[in-house]
Nucleic acid binder design. Structure first.
Length: 237
DNA sequence: TAGTATAACGGCG
DNA sequence: TCGCCGTTATACA
């Protein structure tokens, strides 16, 4: 009985998301992206509104970051959600995941259905307007599953997204590799496939003319056991 | 261990 | 307004 109910629920989810997604492939040396519009405008509007009500963003120490020895407030709002007990460390700070909200589960399942990948964590960044931004970095944390893409869902104001190859940075940047620039639309999904994050930095630059907020959700798969023997990413099981 | 990298900013062109 | 550069002391196996 229980099994039948589970199967029915699964079929419902499949039916709901099974419309084919028209992917656009973006490739360069060591870069592999897939881009698609996942949600209609109407659906994306509704999801944005629900997230505005549901998501609780970090405050205080959690909302600060240390770079080159100096402590700064992050120029955006940030939140971490995922499976119970999951931790994620980046930029020298460890964040404990809040448990999934219904809206986040819905979006996660839509992404899984469109990509065939499962995710146990999402980092949420909210850019209040075009002044909010994120600097160049790679998502290269050890605890990320190296074979799983990072799935980036955009809701709200469209923003430019820039990727630069690691060998094209610095004054005497060795190789002439052009940056890759994209605009991430309301309701879009961008997959950053391996090995993109090994070679390419990405950023969301300031755009003074943008007046409206954008919410970005990056779904990830975090490994439950680190290279050692310790269950580093889970509190207690 | 020592060497390496830096999710931020301000100062320019 | 945009994009590139240099920073600096801390964090990490």
């Amino acid at each position: 009985m229980q099994n039948e109910e589970d199967e029915e629920a699964e079929l419902e989810v499949l039916a709901e998301f099974s419309h084919p997604v028209p992917w656009q492939k973006i490739e360069a040396q060591g870069l592999d992206l897939d881009y698609a519009l996942l949600f209609s405008k109407e659906e994306a509007d509704a999801l944005f509104k629900q997230l505005e009500e549901e998501v609780m963003y970090s405050t205080g120490e959690e909302a600060k970051v240390q770079v080159f020895g100096k402590l700064h407030n992050i120029p955006r709002r940030q939140a971490t959600y995922g499976d119970a007990g999951l931790r994620y460390t980046y930029s020298g700070r460890t964040h404990l995941a809040c448990t999934w909200t219904p809206t986040l589960e819905y979006i996660r399942d839509a992404v899984t259905n469109a990509t065939g990948h499962t995710f146990n964590f999402v980092l949420i960044n909210r850019y209040r307007d075009g002044e909010d931004h994120i600097g160049e970095h790679r998502d290269d944390e050890k605890e990320l599953d190296p074979v799983c893409p990072i799935a980036s869902v955009s809701l709200g104001a469209a923003r430019d997204f820039v990727l630069r190859h690691r060998d094209a940075r610095g004054k005497r940047g060795a190789r002439r590799l052009e940056p890759v620039k994209l605009q991430l639309a309301h309701g879009s999904l961008l997959l950053m496939n391996p090995p993109t994050n090994t070679f390419w930095y990405h950023s969301l630059p300031v755009r003074k003319k943008v007046r409206l907020p954008r919410i970005n959700l990056t779904f990830r798969r975090i490994l439950l056991i680190s290279r050692g023997e310790e269950p580093a990413n889970v509190w207690s099981l």
